[in-house]
Write a protein that binds this DNA or RNA. Structure first.
Lengths: 218, 218
DNA sequence: CAATCCCCTGAATGACCGTTCACATTGGCC
DNA sequence: GGCCAATGTGAACGGTCATTCAGGGGATTG
């Protein structure tokens, strides 16, 4: 009675088979996300994660080298995807820096609302990784901030933005940090039970960003 | 050769002496702040903290009931002081909501720059406390947000603020959260090595807040 | 059917943690 | 000097953790 799967790929290289791409690894990832988000990496045990998948401790090591590598895996994939969508949002929004900024904030906030668990872990738990991996994530964060600084610089040059100055100068990096902090930490408190939808959050935050940088209304 | 202290208070109640209010407890508090901020509560051991004070593990329990109570002690005192200065800033800034908002943000940002270590711990490590203590801190945070919402509401009523709307309505709570997130997380990246002084940070953030809520310029 | 491979189990290992406790050591006070 | 209270020491206790490993199916392949 073989009522199980009906996988019948053409044999690939005879070694890498890739039969069921589903269950175990993805289940572990999902459980890890949920638990790390709720309780924090150091206090979540391997036993906790695997129990949530209906497995026992030892089984983790058939899929990941260590608990650290599991964290690294889920964080980097999340972060890479975030960097990608930010890049895309900025690139695909025409030439007007106002539209670019709005698109960037919109995408960023929507993502942090919708994938709040993943975002929360990626933003809060990096410090448990070893130095070189932390450096990688930070590089990605700087890249995202760089995109935003680029938009701001473009807006200032073209006279469409007039952000606050400190002692007669612009500090676009600080402004970018402020905007990113604001948008990032939506993931700490936004919930679908709240009063605003993801769409409304995105709009509100885009409006605030445009005002903060002194975007001309026309 | 008694070259030590020259404490000669009038005997107080003969029981509570309060001789040297200095060294040990304060040293433990300071070491705990530093280590919790840098590495996080769960991975900092009692041995770590006490070694940083030049003492051994056991000595902690002459001053605090437990590691938990130590965390509670340093977090609540920080949080209570923050609530106090916020209240004070809002109360002592005249009637103009623009001045009130500027004063509030100024004080809040300055404090999160100057006491970044304490702020960081108080904001990031609460979840390790037991439920009732977490609830206490959250109440205080809500109170601070309440002060800010009050300022915003006052500004809207008097026509001096015109914040972004969602579907024709104001959501002052969401706006307050956004502003607070922005200002709070300064403690995650600001360092005296940076390009801006605390004063400049405070001014920049106050400017951005005023713009975000659509404060009239005159 | 036998061989093979993947995946899982659950006990064992070695390390480390918060906390306790019996025992100094110290300094003030009669 | 002798007593007391406060404070520090470091071994010890009970517990938990990440990781390893020998063994056990179950399905696929020949």
């Amino acid at each position: 009675m073989s009522k199980r799967k009906a996988v019948r790929e053409a044999p690939v290289v005879s070694a890498v088979v890739e039969r069921e791409p589903r269950a175990p690894v993805e289940a572990i990832r999902a459980a890890a996300f949920a638990q790390f988000a709720e309780r924090g990496y150091p206090v979540v045990t391997v036993r906790d994660i695997m129990k949530a998948c209906g497995l026992t401790q030892g089984a983790l090591y058939n899929h990941f080298k260590s608990k650290d590598e599991l964290l690294h895996d889920i964080i980097t994939s999340t972060q890479a995807e975030l960097e990608r969508v930010c890049q895309q949002a900025a690139a695909g929004a025409g030439d007007d820096p106002r539209a670019k900024l709005a698109a960037f904030v919109r995408v960023y906030v929507m993502r942090h609302c919708r994938l709040r668990v993943e975002a929360l872990v990626a933003n809060r738990e990096i410090s448990w990784l070893d130095a070189t991996r932390v450096a990688d994530i930070r590089r990605s964060r700087r890249a995202i901030r760089g995109i935003l600084v680029g938009i701001l610089a473009h807006g200032v040059e073209s006279g469409l933005f007039d952000p606050p100055q400190v002692d007669g100068r612009y500090d676009l990096k600080a402004i970018a940090m402020a905007l990113l902090d604001q948008c990032t930490h939506v993931s700490m408190w936004y919930g679908p039970g709240g009063e605003l939808s993801e769409e409304q959050m995105a709009k509100l935050y885009a409006d605030m960003a445009l005002r903060a940088v002194g975007a001309t209304s026309r």
